[in-house]
Amino acid sequence: MELVKVNGAVNVKKLMVSVLVPVVGGSIIGAIANQRTREEYRELKKPSFSPPGWVFPIVWTGLYKAMGIAEYRASAKAKNQEEKKKALIPYEIQLGLNFLWSFLFFKWGLRGTAFIEMAVMFGIITWTTYEFYQIDPLAGHLMVPYIMWVTFALGLNYSIWKWNDD
């Protein structure tokens, strides 16, 4: 409970919106972008460090929850609208890029483009993390697992792209 308390209180409505936007948005986008792609993904050549498919929705749900809590904390702790906007602009951009990636990689099979897009997304996630940390160190720390996962996913995306570039 302490994780979601800001200045000793919890704004339940704001917290719910902050968490549900990435969790529900990611679930809907994933369902749409991954329609009829499971078999194709199974057929791709993948590196030995590629986790089984069932790992991805579990990891992403946790990451989306953490980033939603981070957004909630940074928004609530921002001193003014300008500081809040400075943090939320990169957050919203990275979230949009996150949702776009599934279409690039799975739906449209543009794995090289997806890799480049993810590299840009990585930079914007790092920027978001920095901005959140300036407002609330805990919010910044909540973004670190996301950075780590996207670093891993960059290597996985690159490998799949190069091993299946035909």
Rank of each mutant, 00 (worst) to 15 (best):
Y91D: 02
A87E: 06
P137H: 10
A33K: 08
Y146R: 00
N157F: 01
M118L: 15
M16C: 13
L44F: 12
M148T: 12
L138D: 08
I124K: 00
F122K: 01
W60S: 07
T126Q: 02
I58C: 04
P90T: 08
Q81S: 12
V55Y: 11
A33P: 11
L110V: 01
F115K: 00
K45A: 13
L88P: 00
I58F: 12
K85S: 12
W149K: 06
V17C: 11
V150F: 11
G140W: 02
P22S: 06
P22I: 03
M143Y: 08
P52L: 11
L15W: 10
A66F: 13
E92A: 03
N7A: 11
K14R: 14
A31Q: 12
K85C: 00
N164V: 06
L3S: 10
L156H: 05
G62S: 09
I160T: 11
M148P: 00
P51I: 05
E40A: 15
Q81V: 01
G62M: 07
M143R: 05
K45E: 14
N11A: 07
G109H: 15
L15D: 12
V10P: 04
L44Y: 14
V59T: 12
V17S: 09
L97I: 06
G8R: 07
I125R: 05
V59H: 04
G25L: 06
T151W: 09
F99G: 09
R42H: 07
I28S: 05
V144A: 09
L142S: 10
G112N: 09
L156C: 08
N98A: 09
S18E: 05
P47K: 10
V120P: 06
W54T: 13
A70M: 04
M16S: 14
I69F: 05
V6C: 09
M148E: 01
G25D: 03
I160P: 01
K85L: 13
M148Y: 03
N34G: 15
E83W: 00
A66Y: 05
L15H: 12
N34L: 13
G140A: 08
S159F: 03
F103A: 08
M16K: 07
L63F: 02
M16G: 08
A153Q: 05
F106C: 10
